[in-house]
């Protein structure tokens, strides 16, 4: 359809990699110049240099904490996705169950998860489990909602086709509805990735032991704002990485979605 001459390929590299990098560079420069020109005390807002310096003081420790938080995010996210997909499929399969479960789900989602953190401490004590549970609690609802929306978005003509072929419920579900729902599922997954990180940090800040959330909680106690910023920067990096990994998986699994939506 389109011929990719060397010129257009260069243009694509520029729009896919060049522009995002440029955006980051501009943002950091802006931050830096604000701290310099407005002479902001590093105690309030440290400059990028202060943050990097703070990171370089204990790089191994910070990377270790990053890894711990990432693990909690990953485990919790996987549980949330598995659970969310299962619940969505069950709800899509039975209208009765859906009607019964919907108010409970909405209520659970409306509870501020921060308020649950002290309870989780009481129930599960320290260590990984309360943090992972927090990740699951925060990130599973978008997965459920988007999957259900996707499963009920099958076009009428495809339903009619399946019916005219006497396809069983299961055949229709697997061959038509589920795949049709995938683009919407990924919308939910992309909403859920940053939420998962937020969940892990909530768990760690409220109940600190390890992880970047604990680093932030500790830095507040020792008035080390640059360290808190370093931890925040690392969290942001995890977030970006997760988001792009998710987008990559989406492109692999549903390459057709972009084509039909454009």
């Amino acid at each position: 359809m389109t011929d990719f001459s060397s010129g257009t390929r260069l243009a694509r590299v520029w729009t896919n990699a060049g522009l995002p990098v440029l955006g980051v560079v501009i943002a950091v420069t802006l931050w830096w110049s604000l701290t310099v020109f407005l002479r902001i005390d590093p105690f309030y807002v440290p400059s990028p240099a202060d943050v990097v310096e703070s990171f370089l003081r204990t790089p191994r420790f910070l990377l270790q904490e990053t890894w711990i938080t990432s693990q909690r995010v990953l485990v919790g996210f996987c549980i949330a996705v598995a659970g969310g997909l299962t619940i969505a499929v069950v709800l899509a399969a039975s209208r009765t169950v859906e009607r019964m479960a919907m108010p409970i789900l909405a209520a659970v989602n409306a509870i501020p998860k921060v308020a649950l953190a002290p309870l989780l401490l009481v129930w599960m004590g320290f260590g990984d489990p309360p943090k992972i549970v927090m990740v699951v609690l925060v990130s599973f609802f978008p997965v459920v909602v988007s999957t259900m929306a996707g499963l009920s978005s099958t076009p009428a003509d495809l339903h009619e086709l399946a019916r005219s072929l006497s396809a069983s419920w299961w055949q229709t579900f697997v061959k038509v509805r589920l795949t049709w729902a995938l683009p919407q599922v990924f919308v939910g997954l992309k909403v859920a990735t940053p939420l998962a990180i937020i969940g892990a940090v909530i768990g760690e800040v409220v109940n600190p032991d390890h992880g970047l959330g604990s680093v932030i909680a500790g830095s507040g106690a020792s008035n080390d704002t640059p360290l808190a910023f370093a931890a925040l920067a690392l969290l942001a990096a995890i977030g970006v990485l997760f988001f792009y990994v998710m987008a990559g998986i989406e492109r692999l699994l549903v390459p057709w979605a972009r084509a039909i939506s454009s």
Partner: peptide
């Protein structure tokens, strides 16, 4: 008995 509908109703994937 086979149907042909107004729209092709193909699975895009």
């Amino acid at each position: 008995v086979a149907f042909v509908f107004q729209r092709p109703a193909l699975l895009p994937w």
